[in-house]
Amino acid sequence: MEKIKLTIALSGLNNIDSPGPGIPVVRGLRDSKEIDARIIGLVYDNLEPGPYMHDLVDKSYKVPYPSDGVEPFLERIRYIHQVEKIDVLIPNFDSELFTFMKSEKILREMGIRTFLPTLQQFEERHKSNLPEYGKKYGVNVPFSAPITSVEDFRKMQDKFEFPVVVKGKFYDAYIAYDMDQVALYFNKIAAKWGLPIVIQEFVRGTEVNVIALGDGKGNTIGAVPMRKTYITDKGKAWGGITLEDPTMMDLTYKIISQTKWRGGMELELIRTTKNELYMIEINPRLPAWVYLAVAAGQNLPEALVKLAMDIQVAPFTKYDIGKMFIRYSFDLIVELNEFEKLSTKGEL
């Protein structure tokens, strides 16, 4: 079968100790037997490794940070599109999703397709809205509340028991054992990711995750559950293994069918010693461990691109259980002239 030639732009090429999903998504696309992809990297920082990984990324362009506003971003995309003729764009950072969702129509008019959750789906699964989400969809969630100052937490402290989890709106989470630690982590996260900060009840148990892809009509195109077997001090998986877990799968099908989720997602769950599942977060994109799902038999990046291109995708019905990943670090040697190109011209 002849492969479909597509130009796919994506971000999240920071393949560092807390990696973005970009490079694993590219690996999935490179494995595809149906898509012949030209990969365009959208880069925020000159030191993201992705642009220098020439066997995976064909061309990279610096793009403005989402916090700079929609217009500068769209202007840059217009320029890149003029040169590259982008077919599909896959944003891989939570922090840029809002900008992309807001621009979905404009991108579409330009001829660039995306496959993203709707604004409503994106908003209602925010960490700060999780209790309402749990109630609405009948899912166990830990008690949590958004705060904009440490004083806010002091006022509602009787509703929590220490330890509590202090979370940023996009990234970062720390376990705080007393008021001093709450204040410390509040300031640390707020300085980096802004407000609100979410205080969440700490649920003791094993952290398990599901990667999934919804077609936007209530169907789950693919889903693979995993347990982190090695966790870094940043809480990221450095190793993981696919599980056979019908309850996690049922929960995923239920959430996707009720919310009609569109796009990739990661459910972060805690399994308690009583075998109950608590949902602690929904990440609105494919996670950095997506290549484990590809290796287990579900090429979700390929399926996502096909959905974006309105190509029919049959739901995956199986995956390999007990498939493991072990992350590793690798020193990429970069010539100064390459770094120079990306830093001065914004292209490589």
Binding site: T206, M226, R227, T229, G240, I241, T242, L243, E244, D245, I321, G322
Partner: peptide, 17 residues
């Protein structure tokens, strides 16, 4: 039933990993 045991004595619980 779902516990896999190989001839080498390697035991794998697919539910917990």
């Amino acid at each position: 039933k779902n516990i896999a045991i190989s001839d080498s004595g390697f035991v794998f619980d697919p539910g917990s990993g």
